[in-house]
Amino acid sequence: MKELQTRLMPHQRRLLMAVPWLWLAVFFMLPFLFVVKISLSEPMLAQPPYADLIRSVEDGLVTIQINLGNYALLWEDPLYREALWGSVKVALVSTVLCLLIGYPMAYGIARAPSHWRLPLLMLIILPFWTSFLIRVYAWIGILKNNGLLNQFLLWLGVIDQPLAILHTSTAVYIGVVYSYLPFLVLPLYATLIRLDNTLLEAAADLGARPWRQFVSITLPQSLPGVLAGSMLVFIPVMGEFVIPDLLGGPDTLMIGKLMWTEFFANKDWPVASSLASVLLLVLVVPFVLMRHYEQRLAEEQG
């Protein structure tokens, strides 16, 4: 029994590896070098709106001019720090909220009779296939002052004045949890369905109560899945733009939205790039964590 590895000619193997590798290296990795480069240049009223780092001076000399001013600005102006902190806070809190809602759902699906599982999973995936933008838009109609939620609460008599939810952080949390919930339920389900049932049976035989069984067996066993899934929410939410833009208000400062404003409204590409560089640096740690737990999961599956 020979592996494909040894069947292919060396040049064929190299080619198979090289094509996707080069595509991603050129269109995914290389661009970040340009982000760092532009973040070190000076903004200029030009097209494109930055000064080149490498300038040839008249007598044939080439000078490289590095400008750390953009990073100094990020450090000095509290706006940027608040935005970064705002993003961390929203990403962290929403990840926890997603876990609190998503874990029982994934657990419920994994425990459901087997002929129920596929339809239940399909129902989790379905919203994911419809437009993200439009699903976020749907919350505007629900959360605004004369929206569905307020009409419903007024009708119930719980409140006698409409609640201002749209354009606040609450609306951002609702939107983020709503949009990213499937990203967490699916990997959690995949972990929970593979758990070793013999341990649970042993615990039950020894008289452990269901809650005790869950806390001391299921929960620790599913921890790698929980952590890998959490990063699938945390990392993209850190740079989220659409949700804070459509549902958030002046009290929700997030780095993704600030980058958009710097880039499109202020046409300040260097500052937008330095924000991106900082965000990239911040995201390295959760990304490494995610890879670590995913690989552990893959090894456990054999």
Partner: peptide, 30 residues
């Protein structure tokens, strides 16, 4: 066992979680 296997794995996982705004900005600059 091929060279580049590990780095390809990283480059394939990263776009799945990378915030879109980062991909958009960096590609435009490229």
């Amino acid at each position: 066992k091929q060279r580049g296997h590990q780095s390809l794995g990283v480059m394939v996982t990263a776009p799945l979680v990378m915030p879109e705004i980062m991909i958009g900005l960096s590609l435009l600059l490229l």
